[in-house]
């Protein structure tokens, strides 16, 4: 099997299965979460604060006050990583083409060197965050295999993409195939690992904001 054959398989059957597992898994988990339901809250809300859930979705995403004093590594690393990953996934021109082919939605990509720099920043942040996780006793105690798996699943597409773009370590076609395999692995496992926070994050933030408002601590 030549490298091009491997790439064709990675872009073909392998990616099809990964995408289908991802979509089915995400729908399944969202369905499960929503179908859990909540008992009707018969108590009168302590404060009337419409839109608190929506506001919380925004406020919890912004840098909190005193974050640099509390835990600068986690906060800065977290922001750098998430921003870098977001731009790399959604604004690298070949990725935009991928999204366009699947959804019909497209937008202009950013210059490759800029995306490249942000991808490097994201990878460095991932490295620092892992080191911090291992060195910080509390974080280490809270971490399980699932956390390390999620870390590796996220790093691999970034790393293989970077190596492919720069023609490092291996021949481009092979590295591109590995990049697609790693992206496929990420997609397939995303719904069933902590990476599902991609979808559940804003749902839970909305719920927390809304329920807190009913209990008198509206955002």
């Amino acid at each position: 099997m030549s490298h091009l054959d491997l790439l064709t398989f990675a872009r073909g059957s392998a990616l099809n299965w990964a995408l289908m597992l991802c979509v089915a898994g995400v729908v399944l988990r969202l369905f499960e979460i929503f179908a859990l339901g909540r008992k009707a809250d018969l108590a009168r809300p302590r404060t009337v604060s419409p839109g608190s859930g929506w506001r919380t979705m925004a406020t919890r995403s912004l840098p909190p006050e005193g974050m640099l004093k509390r835990d600068p590594v986690t906060y800065i690393g977290g922001y750098v990583f998430h921003l870098g990953l977001l731009v790399t996934i959604f604004f690298f021109a070949p990725h935009v083409e991928f999204i366009r082919s699947m959804t019909g939605l497209g937008w202009p990509g950013l210059p490759a060197p800029l995306v490249d720099a942000l991808a490097v920043a994201a990878m460095m942040a991932l490295g620092i965050l892992l080191a911090h996780r291992l060195n910080n006793p509390v974080k280490r105690m809270l971490s399980g295999n699932g956390d390390y798996l999620a870390w590796a699943l996220t790093l691999l597409p970034l790393l293989t993409g970077y190596l492919a773009y720069h023609h490092l370590l291996s021949e481009y076609t092979l590295m591109l195939a590995l990049h697609l395999f790693s992206a496929g692995l990420l997609l397939a496992l995303l719904p069933f690992t902590k990476l599902f926070h991609t979808f559940s994050l804003f749902i839970s933030r909305w719920y927390n904001g809304d329920i807190s408002a009913r209990k008198g601590v509206a955002s």
Binding site: T8, R11, G12, S13, L15, N16, L19, M20, L21, C22, V23, A24, G25, V26, V27, L28, F31, P94, H95, E97, F98, S101, M102, T103, G104, L176
Partner: peptide, 19 residues
């Protein structure tokens, strides 16, 4: 080159229905 070779929106629709 970055587009899937054979994945289609219909395929994803089926996956969503399975979900």
């Amino acid at each position: 080159l970055s587009m899937p070779v054979s994945a289609t929106p219909a395929m994803l629709g089926t996956a969503a229905a399975a979900g």
